[in-house]
Amino acid sequence: MKLQQLRYIVEVVNHNLNVSSTAEGLYTSQPGISKRVRMLEDELGVQIFARSGKHLTRVTSAGQEIIRIAREVLSKVDAIKAVAGEHTYPDKGSLYVATTHTQARYALPEIIKSFIDRYPRVSLHMHQGSPSQIAEAVSKGLADFAIATEALHLYDDLVMLPCYHWNRAIVVLPHHPLASKTQITIEELASYPLVTYTFGFTGRSELDIAFNHAGLKPRIIFTATDADVIKTYVRMGLGIGVIANMAVSAESDHDLVKINADILFPQSTTKIGFRRSTFLRSYMYDFLQRFAPHLTREVVDMAVSRRSNEEIESIFQKIKLPVK
């Protein structure tokens, strides 16, 4: 059994059992991957993948356990490399952050800039996607940190650290009937067409819960993953926008009227997550604290030592998170 074989089977799963795509991603040949996967199966005496002709169709029950352990082994190998790098080149390395558009556009720019200024030899990469895609990327080892509001709870193998609370805002055109109001009711909001986030993005579930509790059904006529896209369609008169408060700027959105929606919807909490097996480099601790000042090395290490995310939550009960 070789590490290369373990990497191959993990990457095959990461590429949805498409061996051709896996070969392209690993810059190797498709027959080479197929041959080494077969050799590993022969050595273990079990099938990792079920097949139909030359095509892989699913991961077998034995294969699921093997893949899970293979991920852990490869994660430990990466951790060994990280330990070596920490001692030889403490300010050199890479950092992969997976997040949503709202975080990338409104919460991270100044943090990214200050981080790059401090660590010019760290290669920083940002991947945007849906919250479930983000959490999955970190769970599979394709990213170091996941920053999102939704979906991180779906992955028990992630350490999830609460960073800040945030509220929603309603944006309308200046001539809209609601533009003169400082507060509106959920009933008023339900009477107008809404433009908001796609389900599963940026705290959208809290919006749906609020309407359900009021026994109302929102008239959602357009959804998008990007707050800037939502504001564009509000400007076109398509409907009222319901977006994160941080996504409304007095400078760039001076043609829109913002109405705070604090009393309509509960606060959402943005969290940052990483695999329990991750060896945190010094610059990674620094990134965590830049993003959320209360995430000191001591607090992060304390959270990592806890067995579950429920126990981690208890650490933050006495910490007052900022509100954005």
Score class of each variant (00 low, 15 high):
L6I: 08
E11I: 05
V13E: 12
N14P: 09
H15P: 06
V19L: 15
T22W: 05
T22H: 06
E24D: 13
G25F: 11
L26N: 01
Q30C: 01
G32E: 09
S34N: 11
K35M: 15
R36A: 09
L40Q: 04
D42W: 00
L44F: 07
S52T: 11
K54D: 10
R58I: 07
A62D: 15
A62R: 12
Q64K: 14
E65M: 10
E65V: 10
E65W: 10
I66K: 06
R68K: 15
R68C: 09
I69T: 14
A70T: 07
S75A: 12
V77G: 05
A79Y: 00
A79W: 04
I80V: 15
K81A: 12
E86I: 09
H87L: 13
Y89I: 12
V97P: 05
A98E: 06
Q103M: 13
Q103Y: 11
R105F: 11
A107P: 05
I111S: 03
I112T: 14
S114K: 14
S114G: 10
R118V: 11
R118E: 15
P120D: 03
P120I: 08
V122E: 03
L124I: 10
H127L: 15
Q128D: 01
Q128S: 11
G129I: 03
G129H: 06
G129M: 04
P131L: 02
P131H: 06
S132D: 14
V138I: 13
V138R: 02
A143F: 02
D144E: 08
D144C: 06
H153Q: 09
L154V: 10
V159H: 00
M160F: 03
Y164V: 10
Y164F: 15
R168A: 08
A169Q: 04
V172C: 07
P174Y: 05
H175G: 00
H175W: 12
H176N: 08
P177R: 00
P177E: 03
P177T: 04
S180F: 00
T182F: 08
S191T: 09
Y192K: 03
P193I: 04
P193T: 00
L194G: 03
V195I: 15
F199N: 15
G200Y: 03
G215F: 07
L216C: 10
P218W: 00
R219A: 14
D228H: 05
V229W: 08
K231C: 05
T232N: 14
V234M: 02
G237M: 08
V242L: 14
V242R: 02
I243H: 00
A244P: 11
V248Y: 15
L256A: 02
L256M: 09
L256K: 06
I259P: 04
I259D: 01
N260Y: 08
F265A: 04
Q267V: 10
T269E: 11
K271E: 08
I272N: 01
L280A: 06
R281K: 13
Y283V: 08
M284N: 00
A292H: 07
P293K: 03
H294R: 02
L295W: 01
T296F: 05
R297D: 03
E298D: 08
M302L: 13
E310C: 06
I312W: 01
F316G: 04
I319C: 03
K320I: 12
V323H: 10
